[in-house]
């Protein structure tokens, strides 16, 4: 068998039999090269994942799971009457709000910083900086800002006439709103950078042609820019949604899920159930439900993109 261009490669065989042997050796070498990675993914990801799926149908309790037995769907049945779990789902869906918010604000910031303005580069850096800072540092800073009586936010609100400003992190009614504000602020910079890169690629001639035809600024944005960047918008929404369902550090640092579980989301509840209560079986069941929720949202978004994403 002749392989086109093969005879010009160094070390290449010249006969059909030696070509087949050579290809087998090349395949073996390829497999050897990827073997460490495959082993790592299998041992540290796939096997624990499958093990976790199996655990969800057992009563594993305690660090070493003594007295382990199969309990069928009992863990999942328990979820239906677990008010803390149901609250965590509701909180997680509410927490999702920061995703479209940060995407929209990221786009607006990118649009503004895509123009030739004074201090453009320092402003771009300032917007992106929160994304680089650790969740713990961000959490502590915002706790000071959100202080119910002495924080600058409430001080400002009281100065403009609000007599009963929100308790923010000290109130079950406003704690999740405070978390959404912090999460939006933190992720806005990342979205801005991505949009900034894509906006550079929007064909100028299309925009100029539209302007010549009498299109106003907003019409150019709506009919040219937004469709052009729709794939990346879709990407940011999907990734943002997945991250929102996996978020842990920020809420753990700022509120720990309180007050009164008003900011408790599913990843925190999984962590608490597994590593504080050592109810590994039940925690695995919650993790499976979380996986199904993320999967469903992703599928919904995937089918929904046909309506508004232009490739």
């Amino acid at each position: 068998m002749k392989v086109p261009g093969r005879s010009t490669l160094p070390g290449a065989p010249h006969s059909e039999v030696s070509t087949v042997n050579w290809m087998k050796r090349q395949q073996l070498i390829g497999y050897l090269f990827v073997l460490p990675s495959v082993l790592g993914v299998t041992v540290f990801f796939l096997i624990p994942l499958l093990f976790s799926f199996g655990l969800a149908f057992t009563n594993w309790v305690g660090p070493a799971g003594r007295g382990l037995r199969f309990v069928g769907l009992a863990n999942f049945q328990r979820l239906l009457s677990d008010e803390v779990f149901l609250k965590a789902i509701g909180n997680n869906i509410l927490y999702l709000l920061h995703v479209p918010l940060s995407v929209v604000l990221g786009f607006l910031a990118a649009s503004a910083l895509n123009r030739r303005i004074y201090l453009r580069n320092p402003l771009r850096a300032a917007f992106f900086l929160p994304y680089l800072i650790s969740a713990i540092a961000i959490g502590f800073s915002w706790m000071l800002l959100f202080h119910p009586t002495q924080g600058p936010i409430n001080q400002f609100l009281m100065s403009v006439g609000m007599t009963d400003p929100p308790g923010w992190l000290a109130s079950t009614k406003s704690a999740m709103l405070a978390i959404i504000i912090i999460a939006t602020w933190q992720s806005l910079g990342f979205n801005m950078i991505i949009f900034l890169a894509v906006l550079q690629d929007v064909p100028q001639e299309l925009k100029e042609a539209a302007q010549i035809d009498g299109a106003a600024g907003w019409q150019v944005t709506r009919h040219i820019t937004l469709p052009f960047i729709s794939p990346i918008t879709f990407f940011l929404l999907v990734i943002g949604t997945m991250n929102a369902f996996k978020s842990f550090g920020l809420i753990q640092a700022v509120t720990g899920g309180g007050p009164a579980n008003s900011t408790l989301i599913l990843p925190l509840y999984v962590y608490r159930t597994a590593f504080r209560y050592y109810e590994m079986g039940y925690a695995s069941a919650i993790a499976i439900v979380l996986f199904l929720i993320i999967f469903s949202f992703t599928v919904l978004q995937w089918y929904g993109q046909k309506k508004w994403v232009h490739y």
């Binding site: 706790m143 119910p148 308790g167 000290a170 704690a175 509120t255 007050p259």
Partner: peptide, 10 residues
């Protein structure tokens, strides 16, 4: 101090 305020303000 009210508990939630004590926690939220560290």
């Amino acid at each position: 101090p009210v508990l939630a305020v004590q926690k939220a303000t560290n």
